[in-house]
Design a protein around this nucleic acid. Structure first.
Lengths: 128, 128
DNA sequence: ATGATATATGAATAGTTGCTCATATATTCA
DNA sequence: TGAATATATGAGCAACTATTCATATATCAT
């Protein structure tokens, strides 16, 4: 049997699935949230966002900064633009990209705080 | 030519790639950041985290809540555990999962703020 | 217009990932 | 111990994604 409502020990209050369900945001919002975070979940895009948090940059500069091809960077910038994390401004033949708003920085900082807080152990994935 | 240092208009200061490079966190940290956000970048995991932010829950309850198989949930909980976003406590034959710390909630909230702020348009991906 | 430079984009591909299915492990109860 | 319940996990597969390559578009200088 599951879903016991009784507080069997010194743990936090446990609610039933139904009670939890009624207190969750609507599905739509949760999917949008996942979509947003997925964009942050790639090292190339993270590097781009991080670079842009330091300074506005054109495509070629970002490519040189990350030692990646112009094409790869352009593709990722498109993704970042679609979710409104960056915006473009044409300057002559260059496209100067910048962070769209400060939410990016805030989300970033929270992430930093977590990885620093956790520091050691696990974190399998891209991290070498 | 790129990397112009002159401020050609009313835009933010633009730095050279080298200047930007020296002000970025080390690679290792950026990879860890991407790894962390990637975990948030899946709707199933987002739902699980969201549910756990409301109440501690056992595997079966989460599965019923999300209408998914126990196996699928267990696999995702493993991922969440590896990056220290959730922790387990055995209670009889059940495993009761809970958020590991409050960074999760904070990162969440920032994400919420962004998707609400942006609200309309784009956001292609999982969002129906 | 022509050539050079900067960026954008479509198609193809290799690598990754989330789920399912089968099965193993763990715990409780009779 | 043996049956039942709850969870964990490995293998396999389908779907997705980040990069490359080729090429298109856009802007500037001559």
């Amino acid at each position: 049997m599951n879903s016991q409502t009784s507080v069997s020990s010194d743990e936090a209050l446990r609610l039933t699935p139904d009670e939890v369900s009624s207190r969750m945001p609507d599905e739509r919002t949760l999917y949008e949230l996942a979509d947003l975070f997925r964009v942050f979940g790639d090292s190339t895009r993270i590097k781009i966002l991080c670079a842009l948090s330091v300074s506005d940059l054109c495509v070629a500069d970002i490519a040189s900064l990350l030692s990646m091809t112009q094409s790869a960077i352009s593709h990722q910038l498109r993704v970042l633009k679609q979710v409104r994390l960056v915006r473009v401004a044409r300057k002559g033949r260059s496209s100067v990209y910048s962070l769209d708003d400060d939410h990016v920085r805030t989300i970033f900082d929270q992430g930093f705080r977590h990885v620093r807080h956790i520091a050691p152990s696990s974190e399998r994935g891209e991290a070498k």
